[in-house]
């Protein structure tokens, strides 16, 4: 375990928020009797990530994802608990640590708006002390991995959102960090750019063995990049493991589609599972995972089936249901 890139133990962040009612009266009252309350954004979470792992970090807005990411890169001081990232305490922000990490935030850009990305990238090269020759090599390499060309010479304001994000990634990875914190890196991108960014991240991971912690609202990012996901809700980890086991936990039911060559009554189908959709020669059923094999063999024996299809409900749907299902969820 001492080999871990990132290890987090009982990490907690409390914010004290002062409550103020709007208006002059509220301000005055606030001034005289300051009422603060403590909000726990991150509540004693523990996990560890091995070098080269790509971990998806998911959860609804306000679950504590960004706070955790920022504690891991040192921008927020933890209230209690331990964080260690490649052997450093992040919040000391030592240069030796900073040179090995990067943070990419999909909704915030570091490139200067009025200048071509190349100018900002060269500033970064100077900041990280990369020699001009090495800089050019790295730019060429990353640009070809990202599929960037002339765009690097055009002012940022004239680039499309996808091109801009790719340039941001180039600027953020020029110093070849071994730890990547990615906060919604595909936010607002079209499908093609999203796929491109994912492919890039995956090949960067392969080439440099970099560790990545990725938060995203697009499950596509997670499913295509991460074997492991950490699901966080109300500041607590409610799942840490493979995506498949998460699906199994979240969806104890499988969906079965039947097509029949002879009309059947609702009752004769209903005994095998919960009917979601029904016409006389078509049905969609929900069947518990555990009873799936026996139920299907019964269906095939008893009913005139022409076609049968078993599927998991889409993960997006499952996550959405999970987060909508309210305060007290347990899986």
């Amino acid at each position: 375990m001492s080999m871990a890139s990132i290890s987090v133990n009982a990490l907690t962040k409390n914010y004290s928020v002062s409550r103020k009612t709007p208006g002059i009266k509220g301000t005055l009252k606030h001034f005289l009797f300051r009422r603060t309350e403590t909000i726990t954004a991150v509540d004693e979470i523990s996990f560890s990530i091995q070098p080269g792992e790509m971990v998806g970090f998911i959860g609804p807005n306000g679950a504590g994802k960004t706070t955790t990411l920022k504690m891991l890169c040192g921008l927020i001081h933890p209230t209690s608990g331990d964080v260690s990232v490649i052997g450093h305490k992040p919040h000391s922000l030592e240069p030796g640590f900073l040179k090995q990490i990067t943070l990419v935030m999909g909704q915030k850009q570091q490139l200067l708006w009025d200048l071509p990305p190349l100018d900002s990238i060269k500033v970064n090269a100077a900041v990280y002390g990369i020699s001009p020759r090495e800089t050019n090599n790295r730019i060429d390499e990353l640009a070809s991995m990202l599929g960037l060309g002339n765009e690097l010479n055009r002012p940022v304001r004239k680039l499309s959102l996808g091109e801009r994000m790719k340039a941001e990634l180039l600027a953020a990875l020029l110093h070849r960090p071994s730890i990547l914190f990615l906060d919604e890196p595909t936010l607002g991108l079209d499908v093609i750019s999203q796929v491109r960014v994912r492919e890039f991240l995956s090949s960067y991971n392969e080439r440099y063995g970099a560790t990545m912690l990725l938060s995203s609202h697009y499950m596509g990012d997670i499913t295509s990049l991460c074997d492991r996901v950490i699901l966080i809700h109300h500041g607590q980890i409610i799942h840490d493991g493979s995506l498949i086991t998460l699906t199994e936990k979240l969806a104890p039911l499988k969906s079965v589609r039947l097509e029949l060559n002879k009309p059947q009554t609702r009752e004769s189908i209903g005994k095998y599972g919960l009917i979601e959709d029904y016409t006389d020669t078509f049905a969609q059923l929900l069947i518990p995972r555990k009873a799936l094999t026996s139920s299907i063999s019964n269906i095939l024996r008893d009913l005139p089936v022409t076609d049968l299809e078993v599927s998991d409900p889409p993960i997006e749907e499952l996550i959405r249901q999970l987060f909508e299902s309210g305060e007290n969820l347990s899986i």
């Binding site: 921008l75 900073l98 915030k108």
Partner: peptide, 13 residues
């Protein structure tokens, strides 16, 4: 305001 101070703080400078 824009939250880009984060990037500045994470630079080794």
């Amino acid at each position: 305001k824009n939250g880009t101070l984060d990037y500045v703080l994470l630079k080794p400078i």
